[in-house]
Design a protein around this nucleic acid. Structure first.
Lengths: 342, 342
DNA sequence: TTGTACGCGTTATCAC
DNA sequence: GTGATAACGCGTACAA
C-alpha cells in the first residue's frame, strides 16, 4: 500500500501490457469489453490514480493555468479568482495562484516560474510598479499564453478583460450632478495606470457634458487607503471654496474621507455627496451606505478564463487579440441621494 | 523560436552531452568552469527554461501544494491563502487552489484531482456538509500528506491548525459580563462543526464562571448571513425577558442583528452590547464599530504551511500528528463598551 | 571532468 | 484486440 500504483502494476497483475491498460483506461474503442472491465476492476482494487505529471510531460499540456495578482486577500482579486476557478475547474484545469506584492521583480520571477511549471496559460493583473513594458514584453514572448485582466498593459497582441472604467466614472459623476452637486472633487490614484486614467477621463467628460467647470484643485492623487483619503478630504475642506461632493476612484480612500467629514459634522448626503469605485463589501453596511461603481469581479474572472481558453484552443496558429470590456454598474445608495432616501 | 529549448538543444549546440548540461545547470561541483559558463551562456541565449514537469516526474516531487477551501472570495479564507502563499512561495512551492462550494462530492473529487496532479501535500478546510468522516478517510490514505486548518475533522493521525475558539468565545463573553451585561444571548451556527461547538462551550463556561444563569432560549442557531441574524434578533427581542447583549459566532449574522436593533432604536452600546467572531473588515468601519474575535488568518495560513512542510520533509517515516492552536484575540471596539468610549 | 544508459508514468505508432 | 517500442525532458548511478 505504500507506493502508488501505475498502469504497469495493473498490467503485471493481469498479465497484459501497459499499453492495453492505458487504452482500457482511456476508453479506446479498440478494446474488448472483457479486458476493459478487468482493467477497471483491478485499477480500483489497487487504488490506481493517473499521474497527471506524466500525461502532461507526454502531451505537452499541463492543464494548469497560472493566475497572478498583487494580493489575493483583497475582495476584488479574491472574487476575480473565484470567477476564474469556477470557469476553469469544470473543464479540468487547475488554478495556480501567485502574488506579486506589488513588486515588479517578483512579478518577473513569478512569470518565469509559471512558465517553468509548464502552465498552459497565464492570467495576469500586473503590478502598479511594473511600468517598464519592455521587460515584461520579453517574458511574454510565447510559448505561454497571456491574458490581462483589470490592470492591463497596452500590448498590441495580448488580450485583456477590463470593465468600462470610463463609463462607470462618467455615470457616477453625472449622477452626482443630477443630485444637484455643483463642485465635485475627484480622488485619483495613479495616472500611470490605464484604469485610473480612464476613470479620470470619465469624470472630466461628465463635467463637461453638463457644463460644470473643471477645477484642478478638486483633483487629488491619493493612495488607496483610509489615511490618505482622510488627509485628502481635510485638504479639500480647507479650500476657499470647498467641494460639495467627491467621486473617488477608490472605495478605501473614500472611506477615510467619509470618516473625516462625519467627524467634522458634515452631513452626508444632505450637504455633501460621495460615490466610490469598486463596490467593496463595506460600502453596503456603512451609515450612510456608500454609492459605488461595481466591477463585477466574478464575471471578469469568468470572462478572462474564457478568453484564455479560446486562445489555448486555437494555439498556436492565430494570434488574435481580444479586448473584452465589461459594463461598469453604478450602485446608488444613500451617500449620494440628496433628494430622497434609498 | 517556436519550440521550447531543452537541455538537449544546449548539448547539441555545444557538442557535449545532455548530462553535462544538466550538471552545469544544477551547479554540480564536478564540472569545469569553462563548460559551466558555456552552458549558462547558451542556455540564456536559447531562452532555456527548466521543465518542472520532467523534474517532478523524475524526482517524485512536484513542489506543488493543494489548498482546498469552501470559497476563496471570503475574507477569512483569502487571507489564510495569502499566508500560505507567503510562506510557501519563497521555498519554491506553488499553491494550487480549489473551492468546494460547500459541496461534499466536489470535495472528494477535488482531493482525487489534486492527488492525481501529484501535489506534495494538501491543506484542507473541509466543507460544512462533509460529515461523513469515513469517506474522506479513504481519500486521505496516503501517499499525499494532509493538514487541516480552521475547519478540522478529528482524525487520529492528521495534523491541524486552528485558533483557540473556546478561549476566544470565553474572553468575549467574559468581557460582556464585565461591561455589566446580565442577559447574554448567543448566535450559534452549527454544532456539528467542531469550531462552533467550542465557541458555544466557551460562552457557557464564561457564564458559569461568573454565575450568570444560562438560558436556552437565548441561544439561536443561524446561518452565517445578515437575514438570519436579523430574524434571530427579532425573535430574541420578542422574548418576555429580552437579552441585553449578544455574543455571536458569526460577524455576518451579527451584522443583521445590529441593523435590526438600530432600526428598533435600541442603543448600542448604551443599552445593548454585541461581540462577534472573525473580525471581518467591516466590523471596524461600522457605526458603532463592532467588537470581534480575531482569527489571525495570515498566521494560520503560515502555520499550516509550516506544519505541512515539516511533514513533507520527514515523510514518509514518521506519522507524527501536530495540532497547533493559535491564540484567539478579542478586539474590543465601541459596540461592547457601555462604560466609556474606545 | 565528461559520456553512457536508464527510469520516472504515460500515450502513440507501429506491428501482429 | 493486443504487444512491443519509442518518446516527452530531466537527473543520476556507473563507467571511462
Amino acid at each position: 500500500m505504500s507506493k502508488k500504483a501505475t498502469i504497469y502494476d495493473i498490467a503485471k497483475e493481469l498479465k497484459i501490457t501497459a499499453a492495453t491498460v492505458s487504452r482500457a483506461l482511456n476508453n479506446n474503442p479498440k478494446i474488448s469489453e472483457k479486458t476493459r472491465e478487468l482493467v477497471l476492476a483491478t485499477a480500483t482494487r489497487l487504488n490506481y490514480k493517473q499521474n497527471r505529471l506524466a500525461v502532461a510531460l507526454k502531451s505537452g499540456k499541463s492543464n494548469n493555468v497560472g493566475v497572478i495578482v498583487p494580493f489575493i486577500n483583497k475582495n476584488f482579486f479574491a472574487s476575480v479568482i473565484r470567477g476564474i476557478e469556477d470557469e476553469l475547474y469544470p473543464k479540468g484545469f487547475h488554478v495556480i495562484i501567485s502574488q506579486t506584492h506589488e513588486d515588479k521583480e517578483r512579478e518577473k520571477k513569478i512569470i518565469q516560474n509559471l512558465i517553468n511549471a509548464q502552465v498552459d496559460g497565464i492570467l495576469l493583473s500586473t503590478s502598479f510598479t511594473n511600468i517598464n513594458k519592455d521587460e515584461l514584453r520579453f517574458e511574454l514572448k510565447k510559448p505561454s499564453l497571456f491574458v490581462f485582466f483589470d490592470r492591463t498593459l497596452n500590448f498590441k497582441d495580448i488580450s485583456s478583460v477590463t470593465i468600462d472604467d470610463y463609463q462607470g466614472a462618467f455615470d457616477a459623476t453625472e449622477h452626482l450632478i443630477q443630485q444637484g452637486c455643483k463642485r465635485i472633487a475627484h480622488f485619483d490614484v495613479d495616472q500611470n495606470i490605464e484604469l485610473y486614467k480612464n476613470r479620470f477621463k470619465g469624470y472630466k467628460d461628465a463635467l463637461k457634458k453638463h457644463n460644470v467647470k473643471f477645477k484642478g484643485e478638486y483633483v487629488i492623487s491619493i493612495k488607496s487607503n483610509m489615511e490618505a483619503g482622510k488627509e485628502a478630504a481635510e485638504k479639500l475642506m480647507k479650500l476657499p471654496v470647498p467641494p460639495d461632493a467627491i467621486f473617488s476612484s477608490t472605495d478605501n480612500g473614500l472611506l477615510g474621507a467619509v470618516k473625516y467629514l462625519q467627524s467634522q459634522s458634515v452631513l452626508i448626503p444632505e450637504t455633501f455627496c460621495v460615490v466610490g469605485f469598486s463596490n467593496e463589501p463595506f460600502t453596503k453596511f456603512l451609515e450612510p451606505s456608500i454609492s459605488s461603481v461595481d466591477q463585477s469581479p466574478l464575471e471578469m474572472g469568468k470572462m478572462a478564463a474564457k478568453v484564455l481558453l479560446e486562445q489555448i484552443e486555437k494555439n498556436p496558429v492565430v494570434n488574435s487579440k481580444n479586448d473584452v470590456i465589461l459594463p461598469a454598474k453604478l450602485i446608488v445608495r444613500k451617500s449620494s441621494c440628496k433628494t430622497k432616501k434609498n
